[in-house]
Design a protein around this nucleic acid. Structure first.
Length: 758
RNA sequence: GGGCGAUUAGCUCAGUUGGUAGAGCAGCGCAUUUACACUGCGAAGGUCAGGGGUUCAAAUCCCUUAUCGCCCACCA
């Protein structure tokens, strides 16, 4: 027996070595598995893409949980002879990464990105992203994830960039992507637009002021934002409101807080008679609702707040004042003029930008949008309920994909949440005024003179390849300086990682990366946290549905958030984060994995304390000690030929079969927490505590037949359990497997999953 | 305003299609020429948040109340 068994199991010494063994074998790559007969060329596929971690830093326990769950599925299916592919990668995470580097730049060098210029700044971001990438792949290895590194992708690399430009062009040509002027969410801190989903509402209190523009104005209005009222161009009332009906159509000129305003009274159904004064001061430039009222009544748009959150009116007392200052000045003015009728405190949600925390300012801006209600013809459709060649919309596709069961979401309550999101979905603003990301593949033809550029040709040039000059007039062209929302490129992830658009016409069946798209798309499972259901999952269904007429994955498995022992979200500022790498080094990756699997169902948040991880370290050691005992007990036994078994041993093996078949079913039905718990419980409290203890007198007794039966029974249970435990605790099981006396042994990684007769 | 989830042992949580309540950690007692002290054995600990209903049978299904948490939403 190996001397190693004389000491307790040492994960630190073992894990790096074992991972290298796996990686060197090449069996994370399905092509290699086919080549060596681990699986058949025409075996069923099991494919999964790794949700690409952001290159903003390092992995946290949420990532570890994700890697553990996915690795369980992948190892299980690989052991079952499937053509198993797990594609790894990282996400450039546009805004998140850029703002991180901006912060570093300011902290370390006291510089702003403008001081460096776009090109130099982007070099810094790339350097940062590269370092972060190195950390991340190291962590992914440490956890034992059996991803195919030969297919690693990055959302901003050349191949993915081609996919992005191809998708953009097709959407533009179909009229789905358009440029439009409307109210967008402006983040003054990040100096960019953000999408509706990137706005986070924070509960707070606000003041609700009721006032009149002037003594002579007939209708009082109410607002939480007095500073925007200098941009009002109308007052809207309900058309049936007896109090105000008679004023509809009238116009007034006044000077409000030193700013001349022109107000017309309009009747609009959107106004609620019962709320406030029953009249709305309409500010088309600084409120999405008011913008729509403005559209309906052809109201002028007067912008009074700029991109820096400062007033842009001429009145000297307000000019260049910050929003908060302007508000105070205007409230003071209202008071001094005797125009303020009421001031109350009300609960109010503050809209902030997800990444920078900046307070969102609604502003009118010309941006690029993906139209979710725009009709187009879906040429080829595999989506149930949508026929090939039928006219449809992105919204309909997204809904049909889940409603008709082409994609299932686990737990299913999230399907309802998903539908609700789609029902409320508005056009997706995809352009960002940041530097890091996929630059929009649109060029404008301009004529430059004296530093002034004027547009020449009316239509922009949208192209996959960079055009040299304007194809219409031969003039010089400039690329749109904006970049795309990071979720645009992540939306393509399931197929951009598999070679689309190049390998879209590849031959099914022939192994090799050039045929990945045909061989592995749609993917089987997408496993990720429920917090990115809208950001990512919905966008993937959108992109895949539109570009391929297919779903991106058959099943979505959502895991919960990992919280600390007190139930708080782990964060740097709280200092309560548990570092997965540190934990792996202390207790072993197997223990960390198991602690994140057991005791947590899909979609539920979990609390994790270090004690739990320690508990599973003990389990790894228990497996180790059982291995030692079994190896000692079977010395001299023939592991090839079964002896005659006692009926008790037959029963024990039947119980093993039964347990494994339950575990198999649990894994198939995505109940990993149950499978893990059953493995743990059976191995420790049935096998070790009862079966092994009972076998001791027989092993050391004189009855040779009973001894042989006991040996065979112990050996059979042990080897099958090592296999069944492997997806959950890959390192310790592979290490033990390597020391077992078995003829023509392969890596446990590619051993067959224990099949049951049941 | 709408929707969702949670409430089970001191703590953290499981409990699959309803069939006598389970684990880890903590704690208590016992055991050291034992494969394993990163151990074993044993005991203790729960009117499954409250109330009502369906059922032969409810932690599980239905209704309701409470508390906590989350998500969505253009009440100015």
């Amino acid at each position: 027996m190996n001397d190693k068994f004389l000491k307790p199991y040492d994960p630190l010494e073992t894990e790096g070595r074992i991972y290298k063994l796996w990686e060197d074998s090449g069996y994370f790559n399905p092509d290699m598995c086919i080549k060596d007969g681990v699986c058949e060329k025409d075996a069923d596929a099991f494919s999964i893409v790794l949700p690409p971690p952001n290159v903003t830093g390092m992995l946290h326990l949420g990532h570890t949980a994700m890697l553990a769950i996915e690795d369980i599925m992948v190892r299980y299916h690989r052991m079952n002879g499937k053509r198993t592919l797990w594609v790894p990668g990282t996400d450039h995470a546009a805004i998140a990464t850029q703002s991180k580097v901006e912060k570093l730049l300011s902290k370390e060098e006291g510089k702003r990105k403008q001081d460096l210029g776009r090109e130099e700044f982007l070099k810094r971001v790339e350097k940062f992203a590269n370092e972060s990438h190195g950390t991340i792949v190291g962590q992914v290895r440490k956890i034992g994830a059996s991803v195919d590194w030969s297919r690693e992708a990055f959302t901003l690399d050349e191949k993915r960039s081609l996919a992005v430009r191809t998708a953009f062009k097709q959407m533009y040509d179909d009229g789905i992507i358009y440029q439009g002027l409307r109210i967008i969410n402006w983040d003054p801190k990040g100096q960019t637009t953000v999408s509706d989903d990137e706005v986070v509402h924070q509960e707070g209190k606000g003041k609700f002021y009721t006032f009149r523009y002037s003594k002579d104005f007939p209708i009082p209005i109410a607002t939480t934002r007095p500073e925007t009222k200098v941009g009002d161009t109308a007052v809207a009332v309900h058309p049936d409101d007896p109090r105000y009906k008679e004023f509809i159509g009238k116009e007034y000129d006044m000077v409000f807080a030193g700013v001349p305003i022109h107000i017309q009274i309009v009747g609009d159904e959107a106004v609620e008679k019962e709320f406030g004064t029953g009249a709305v001061g309409v500010t088309p430039a600084h409120s999405a609702v008011d913008w729509e009222i403005g559209q309906r009544h052809n109201l002028p748009v007067v912008q009074v707040i700029n991109e820096y959150g400062k007033m842009m009116v001429e009145a000297p007392e307000l000019k260049d004042k910050k929003i908060a200052e302007a508000r105070a000045i205007i409230v003071e003015w209202l008071k001094s003029e005797g125009l303020l009728e009421k001031e109350e405190e009300i609960p109010q949600n503050l809209a902030t930008a997800e990444r920078t925390g900046g307070i969102i300012e609604p502003l009118p801006k010309k941006q690029w949008f993906v139209g979710v209600n725009k009709e187009f013809t879906l040429k080829q459709s595999n989506i149930t309920g949508i026929k090939s060649g039928e006219k449809t919309t992105l919204k309909k596709i997204m809904k049909a994909a889940v409603e008709n069961g082409d994609t299932k979401i686990i737990p299913d309550r999230f399907e309802k949440i998903y539908y609700h999101w789609i029902d409320n979905l508005r056009d997706w603003c995809v352009s960002r005024q940041i530097w890091y990301g996929h630059q929009i593949p649109v060029w404008f033809c301009t004529f430059s003179k004296d530093g002034q550029s004027t547009p020449m040709c009316a239509n922009p040039i949208v192209s996959i390849d960079t055009p040299k000059s304007c194809p219409h007039c031969g003039g010089t062209i400039e690329q749109d300086t904006d970049t795309l929302d990071t979720w645009f490129s992540s939306g393509l992830w399931t197929f951009s990682t598999l070679g689309w658009p190049h390998s879209a016409k590849a031959t099914r069946g022939e192994p090799g990366p050039e045929n990945d798209f045909a061989n592995y798309h749609p993917t089987n499972v997408l496993e990720t946290g429920y917090d990115i259901l809208f950001f990512w999952i919905a966008r993937m269904i959108l992109m895949s549905g539109y570009l391929l007429g297919d779903v991106p994955f058959r099943t979505v498995y959502l895991h919960g958030l990992v919280r600390d022992a007190q139930g708080r979200k782990m964060s740097k500022s709280l200092g309560n984060g548990i570092d997965p790498v540190l934990m792996s080094e202390k207790y072993g990756a197997d223990a960390v994995r198991l602690s994140l699997i057991i005791g947590t169902g899909p979609g539920n948040d979990m609390r994790l304390a270090e004690d739990k991880i320690r508990g599973y370290k003990h389990f790894a050691n228990k497996i180790w000690n059982v291995a030692r005992f079994v190896l000692t007990s079977i010395e001299g036994m023939d592991t090839e030929i079964a002896p005659e078994l006692t009926s008790e041993d037959e029963d024990r093996l039947a119980q093993l079969e039964n347990t494994i078949s339950e575990i198999t079913e649990d894994i198939e039905k995505y109940r990993f927490y149950l499978a893990g718990e059953k493995l743990y419980h059976y191995f420790w409290h049935t096998f070790a505590d009862v079966i092994i203890e009972d076998s001791k007198p027989r092993l050391f007794g004189d009855d040779e037949k009973s001894k042989a039966s006991a040996q065979w029974m112990l050996w059979t249970i042990f080897t099958n359990m090592i296999k069944a435990l492997h997806p959950f605790m890959p390192f310790v099981t592979e290490e033990i497997w390597g020391m077992l006396p078995i003829q023509n042994k392969k890596l446990l990684l590619i051993e067959k999953w224990p099949h049951t007769t049941i």
